[in-house]
Design a protein around this nucleic acid. Sequence first.
DNA 1: GTTGTTACCTGTACGC
DNA 2: TGCGTACAGGTAACAA
Length: 262
Amino acid sequence: MPELPEVETVVRSLRPALLGRRILNAEFGQLRVLRGLPADTADLLAGQKILTIDRYGKFIAIRLERGYLVVHLGMTGKLLVGVERTKWTHAIFTLDDGSMIFDDPRQFGRIEYGAELPGRVLALGPEPLEVSLEEFTRRLKTRHSPIKAVMLNQLVVRGVGNIYADEALFRAGVRPTRVAASLSKERSAKIYQAMREVLAEAIEGRGSSVSNYVDADGCQGSFQHSHRVYQRTGEPCVTCGTPIKKIVVAQRSTHYCPKCQK
DNA sequence: GTTGTTACCTGTACGC
DNA sequence: TGCGTACAGGTAACAA
């Protein structure tokens, strides 16, 4: 499932294929991923040049000459360049050189278009790789939920999902159920450091390919081989050998070492 | 404003 | 082999 490192990898692989290209034609299906997309969207897009492609947390913002095409990959969404449509294709963009499709079997993804970036994208928390330690700590201090739930809250920091929350908390030695506001300055700093470390390493590894994630060129990531707790239930902790435990926090499966994480 | 719960959706894994 | 069921989880909407 695409989180910050996977979306970053997709954005990086989209840029060479899309920047400077012009959209000649757009075709949309009728599925829920296009909910709220005005009927004349295809007409509005036609003729527009792709100026920039940026990432806001897990959102992809494709800036055109007169607006923004904003894509969220959800759980199984994919933006692919230069491939034929499949039975899960919900949008096809024909370019002056090449093409791009949006595929999404589970239909948790979204595509929208507007003159400006949507307000809820602008309202997201800061990027975890850009936020300062002071700001991060301040944001945790006001939250009275389990730290895992707080890390998943995109208004606190944007882009962290289930995999990297578990991995960061393992590296920080903090139990996912700890209430964020009760964490000491030192422990918050450890989480901050671990979160940035694991995200940077995952970007380096071009993301984690669990479920069906691939980048815009159809390539898999490699960071799934570096997971220390995520989906390793019952396997020995890489540090102490204690079996990794799985619980539910914030309605999400949560993996941790009961000995290393206090 | 914050927190918790539920719906959405379908491919995959598993048990029988 | 085929069927039924549980599970996976990001976001939005809603309730408390």
